[in-house]
C-alpha cells in the first residue's frame, strides 16, 4: 500500500484526537495484517469506492471512546453507556472525512459511505488481494487503532484522464 495514501489518515487522526482529548497521541505500533481484523474495543467502519477502494476501521479501547464521547456530549460519559459507540462512529466520520478531503484535493476521486458500527468480534478480510495496515495510537486513555485496507486503481485513473493529443 502506498504510504502517501496512508499519511493523510495518520495526520487526521492525530489532529482530531489532539482536539478532542486535549492530549497528544503517538504511534505505538504499526503492523501489516493479511487475515480478517479482530476488534479490540468499540469500532466503526467506513468504506469507499472509486479510484481508491477499500475500507478503514477505527477501533477504540472503551476508556478512550468514553473520553471522545464526553467531549462530544459536553458532559462525562461512562464507558459502559451505549452512546459511546455512537461517538466512535462520529469520530470515524470526522477522521476519515478529513483525510479523504486531502486525498481528493490531490486529485483522487472516490465516494465515501456513512460509517457503520462493527458488532462482530472478527471482521471479514477487506479483499482477496488486500493487505491491511494497522496503526496503534497510544493515548492517556487507552489505545486507538486504525486499520487501513485500500487499493489504488491506476487503470481507472488513466481511463478518466484526458487523452494526450499528438
Amino acid at each position: 500500500m502506498k504510504m502517501d495514501l496512508i499519511q493523510p489518515f495518520i495526520g487526521s487522526l492525530d489532529a482530531v484526537l489532539a482536539e478532542m482529548m486535549h492530549e497528544p497521541a503517538s504511534i505505538a505500533d504499526l503492523a501489516m495484517e493479511e487475515d480478517g481484523y479482530r476488534r479490540k474495543g468499540l469500532a466503526a467502519e467506513v468504506t469507499f469506492k472509486g479510484q481508491i477502494e477499500g475500507r478503514i476501521i477505527l477501533d477504540m479501547e472503551p476508556r478512550a471512546a468514553a473520553k471522545v464521547a464526553s467531549y462530544l456530549a459536553g458532559a462525562d460519559v461512562d464507558p459502559s453507556e451505549p452512546m459511546v459507540s455512537e461517538a466512535v462512529s462520529e469520530l470515524a466520520n470526522m477522521v476519515i472525512g478529513n483525510a479523504v478531503t486531502q486525498l481528493n484535493d490531490r486529485g483522487f476521486q472516490f465516494k465515501v459511505f456513512p460509517p457503520a458500527l462493527l458488532t462482530q468480534e472478527q471482521c471479514a478480510k477487506a479483499g482477496s488481494d488486500s493487505e491491511a495496515t494497522v496503526l496503534c495510537f497510544a493515548t492517556a486513555c487507552g489505545n486507538v487503532y486504525l486499520n487501513i485496507a485500500m487499493k489504488y486503481h491506476a487503470r481507472r485513473s488513466r481511463e478518466r484522464s484526458p487523452m494526450a493529443v499528438a
Partner: peptide, 12 residues
C-alpha cells in the same frame, strides 16, 4: 445529521 452526537453538539 445522521449522527446523534453531531446533532447534540451542533444544538449546544
Amino acid at each position: 445529521d445522521d449522527s446523534v452526537f453531531a446533532r447534540k453538539s451542533l444544538a449546544k
